[in-house]
Design a protein around this nucleic acid. Sequence first.
DNA 1: GTTGAAACAAAACATAA
DNA 2: TTATGTTTTGTTTCAAC
Lengths: 158, 158
Amino acid sequence: MGQSKKLRMQLDPLDRKLLMLLGGNARRTNQSLSDELGIAPSTCLSRMKTLKEAGIIDRFTIDVEPDALGFPLQALISVRLQPGARHLMAKVGEELRHAPEILQFFVLGGAEDFLVHIAAKDTEHIRRFVLDWLSANPAVAGTQTSLVFEHARVGPAV
Amino acid sequence: MGQSKKLRMQLDPLDRKLLMLLGGNARRTNQSLSDELGIAPSTCLSRMKTLKEAGIIDRFTIDVEPDALGFPLQALISVRLQPGARHLMAKVGEELRHAPEILQFFVLGGAEDFLVHIAAKDTEHIRRFVLDWLSANPAVAGTQTSLVFEHARVGPAV
DNA sequence: GTTGAAACAAAACATAA
DNA sequence: TTATGTTTTGTTTCAAC
């Protein structure tokens, strides 16, 4: 699909500032962006297109408050697989990432194999998630759950 | 500042679909959104505004590929504070979250106090980050670093 | 809560400089 | 990269439903 060229283009300060501005408000008009950058709208548009096509901008999206959606709790769950089940990593990962509670999914090197970030209605919901998706899987050796008290996504480090 | 009303408004299927569409492309025109939703552009606009004002849409933003920015490595670092330093959590957190490498920042309950997600140029960069921002801080009792092999941010579960 | 119409603003594209 | 012109498309408001 029309993913990207995966070019490792190099960014000048203008590109970086553009990324910063879009990170702050991805719906700003091209004109307002070009004004702030001090460049012509056509230039700004072409920069934006290039960043998108190069895959540097992965997508224009929104940050949603999970608790406003009825999921006031968040948890991080680290998952260790059975030593003999490492070859199932891809499979377990695929299953997991389709759980509706999942916000993020990390595949790790180190003591843990996965880390999943979930949003949930309540603690019972978390417990059920761990049981249904993790503990029930014979490839899973163990899990550790931590409640998230605060979470900040920091803008693109540009 | 003009944050939000933090109303716990309740969402109907239209709101949910709108969130989904915006999650997929936050720069879609209001018109194209309203077409897909089967409502008038003015209605769509007012829904979007309401979602923004209620804080359900936290912001319109972009996902940036960190490795396209020259940070091909990612790591998760969990941080434990000294037992007597828990009252410094807010302070340590404030310092940390301004480090340019930081992508995300979690405050946790459980064995660990923080988890930070960083992007870095190379392993030496990670090492220096841990030394400069964490180990050097007397409030920090210990850290544990894991490399991130894969990371997926899953769209808002709506 | 939803709408269409109207007035306005911006996007898209080409082209030339 | 920019400036400019043209055409098309989108935004926003608001009175009315």
